[in-house]
């Protein structure tokens, strides 16, 4: 069954938190709603469940990949084109470490960016159900649920004092 979305707009964090409580009481799970804001509110401000993520795995994987490529490059270069420099061993660890550091950094940087985009669910072709007032200070509470529960969600949002409510059909699914 395809989920429908409904967006409640609130003027202040207290009424948003009340709406979160109402949604829970109405049987909506933590994964069915999301809070949209133009400001990073401290985690737990609305009594919401903190989103889990695996961002820190990305730079680690990137670092391992970058390190491995740099190791192969340096080893491969010296083994394929042997040239003794200043009496140093052919496989000389100190200069290799510099290249491996560079490779590790580049891999970690690129994978961090990928990780942030992936974990943020970006880029997206559009903004979905959204309202431009959110960047002006309003707080959005976006609920995604089966169509038959949309009424209960709307009731919970209105009961908590939502300033405005938008649904996919009313807003055309966009802004």
């Amino acid at each position: 069954m395809v989920d429908k979305s409904i967006l409640g707009l609130f003027k202040d964090p207290d009424s948003t938190a009340d709406a979160v409580d109402s949604l829970r009481k109405a049987g909506f799970g933590n994964h069915t709603f999301d809070i949209l804001s133009g400001v990073p509110y401290p985690e737990g401000t609305f009594g919401e469940h903190g989103p889990g993520h695996k961002l820190f795995v990305f730079p680690l994987i990137g670092a391992i990949c970058g390190f491995s490529v740099a190791l192969l490059l340096t080893l491969g270069t010296q083994v394929s084109f042997p040239m003794v420099q200043g009496g140093k061993p052919l496989i000389a660890i100190p200069p290799m470490m510099v290249i491996m550091y560079e490779g590790t950094m580049l891999g970690a940087i690129l994978f961090t960016v990928l990780g942030v985009l992936f974990e943020s669910r970006l880029p997206r072709p559009g903004v979905g159900l959204y309202d431009t007032r959110i960047t002006e200070g309003f707080i959005g509470l976006l609920v995604s649920c089966p169509e038959e529960k949309i009424g209960a969600a709307e009731q919970a949002l209105r009961g908590a004092g939502a300033e405005d409510i938008k649904t996919e059909s009313a807003s055309g699914g966009g802004r």
Partner: peptide, 17 residues
Amino acid sequence: ARGWVGSQRQWKMLKSG
């Protein structure tokens, strides 16, 4: 903006990133 909507997840990722 690449579809940024300011969800709690996005803010968390932004700060960590």
